[in-house]
Nucleic acid binder design. Structure first.
Lengths: 199, 199, 199, 199
DNA sequence: ATGTAAACGAGACGGTACGTCCAGTCTTGAA
DNA sequence: TTCAAGACTGGACGTACCGTCTCGTTTACAT
């Protein structure tokens, strides 16, 4: 969870940041987002609930969007910890199920809102990619690449294409508000992407 | 393009609705959305640009979200008219390319914003599904179903799963702000979904 | 009591200004200023007390200073109505007593605060002069001028000098926070300015 | 120039106060006030300009108002040093001219702001009187008293009334933002207060 | 020489009010 | 009835300073 770094000049100058306040803010923000989604995650409400001054929030988070990113990362880390052994296709299949299960809640909601926000805020876009999108995506791509090397997958495809084929359908259902992606659906996707749907 | 219907009491009483105003509003809204996306599409700005009173907009559109839906439909109809002959897999392949080409612009941006909005507004969610999501989705599902009947596709899969496998990757790239989905990518997706990526 | 004029285009367009709101605002502002002086006269407090939205205040008053001017004028008009018959020296003597009596309260306090504010806000300075300072000052100068014409006063002095000699001591005590100018003091001032203090 | 006294327990314990810092603060504060008046005299700006921590300012000055008083005294001492020989009417006439010349600048501006502030801050009011208002006023009153004893002035007037008659018009013009009091005006005032304006 | 008390630099914190932007509603007169 | 105009309520924003607090660091006197 990375916020603005404590104004980096000398290492230990000035009053140290209040860890307590930071935690209270994040906790309050998470609670609010869980209950009312992104619209409920106002700086004002967070400040009140955390028992913290509004200015204290602004000192560390530039706006509510980047605070929401921290909340999203927090939730995501808990609900679907990033895959550790990304070296096999099996790991991807598992990860797929986890994502499907985890994302159909506050996490998915926040993600959607932030993606929308990120279209007009460079900083949000960057943060979202660096802290949410890319880490998992690249782990997956490495796994795909390894599988290609082992001869388990066609190697005439860029790994990103394979990753998109796998994750795309899950997030499609999620973001478009279609039927929620079940774990069963995730498994079907995995199997059919590997085997194809043609005769 | 469906707005509120002219308050239905007696058929033709009072001043008739100004068709000109309706068009001016939609045109202004489209222009604003094209330039600055959803955040620029404020009722205030639309009213000024269309030379129309704010009240007039609210008389016909419940809020800015549903106005944006009309804009989205307008743009979508032009950029990627809904498939006419949905009876062959070829048609889906073509549709896929069209979507990939069309959605990487104002349309995709608006869609994302509206999806975000729809999470806390029942009416928006319904309108978005009825006027944007379902029509195309159901046409695609019928095409898949027909292909299954003709024995061109495995028939142990629900058509919706196949549709998600095809459209998912495209919209995934689009909505997540990854590399824009190119037409080439669309073709790869189609081919690999049919043939599989395994060895 | 002049605020921003109702956006002057066509005469009777749009929803008319709410007289009720205007009065409630002014009443609330006066009450707050009377109790806690200028510092208590915050837009926020006025809005709450008047049961009015903050934006409504800002629509008609550019900032709290010009609102305070209206309050000052209101109070001043009541406590010391501008002299009607300004044609005799007797009138000035009376006016002097009235000012001395009236200004030692909320009015004096507001005046001081506004003078301070006006030093860095052109608009406030102008409004203060046009609506508070000049009207009375010019009436007094006309009275002095008339007295000079009648031969009751030396005519080798600019009327403004005479006015300053008369009003200066009163406001000096007032603004500098010295002993409050009593009516007795006002009379002494008048008499000694006319007769001199020398032997 | 009186600030808080160095926490008085044991006589000479701990690190001694930095005279250099004190001077830097006062110099910075004066510069800021000269340029932008009282509003520019923020603790934050002073601290930065003086290269000093905000805490250091607060250690010696209770708030920005009393710091401003020190600035005012500094400026006043330089621009219009207090009269040395206050024993003759001539000295008052000179002092009057000096005041008129000096006060039409940063000094007058600060004075006005501080008078305003002093209305709701007992400590400021006291300090302002003790360090600015009274010293000069009492010197003037002694001079008047002496002149009365010598038979140069009517002795049926309290000296404070005479002082107000003399200084009032000058400060009236100054504080009310009327035409700046010129030295010529100061002389007229002196002469007319002694001789009267009547026929 | 060394311990200790106070000053100092830095900066986080709680807090108040500001003025702004829009949203969506209400009220009027004219078409 | 609709339309244009515009006043209204209301929520949240992000900013600027205030004055307080809590650190680590420095400095000089008193032991």
């Amino acid at each position: 969870v990375a916020t603005r770094s404590p104004t980096e000049t000398a290492p230990n100058r000035g009053r140290p940041r209040s860890e307590q306040a930071r935690r209270a803010i994040l906790k309050a923000a998470t609670a609010l987002a869980t209950q009312g989604g992104y619209p409920a995650l106002t700086i004002e409400a967070v400040a009140e609930r955390a028992g913290v001054a509004r200015t204290t929030i602004y000192r560390w988070w530039a706006n509510r969007a980047v605070l929401a990113i921290d909340v999203l990362v927090d939730i995501g880390m808990t609900a679907a910890p990033p895959p550790t052994s990304t070296d096999s296709l099996r790991a991807i299949r598992l990860e797929l199920r986890r994502i499907a299960a985890a994302a159909s809640g506050t996490a998915g909601e926040l993600l959607l809102a932030l993606l929308s926000e990120s279209q007009h805020d460079e900083a949000v876009r960057t943060a979202l990619h660096e802290r949410v999108t890319y880490p998992r995506r690249e782990a997956s791509m490495r796994a795909v690449s390894a599988a290609q090397d082992r001869g388990e997958l066609r190697d005439d495809l860029h790994p990103s294409v394979v990753v998109d084929l796998l994750y795309g359908p899950i997030f499609y259902r999620l973001l478009m508000g279609l039927d929620a992606p079940t774990e069963r659906f995730a498994e079907q996707v995995f199997d059919r992407v590997l085997g194809g749907v043609g005769m």
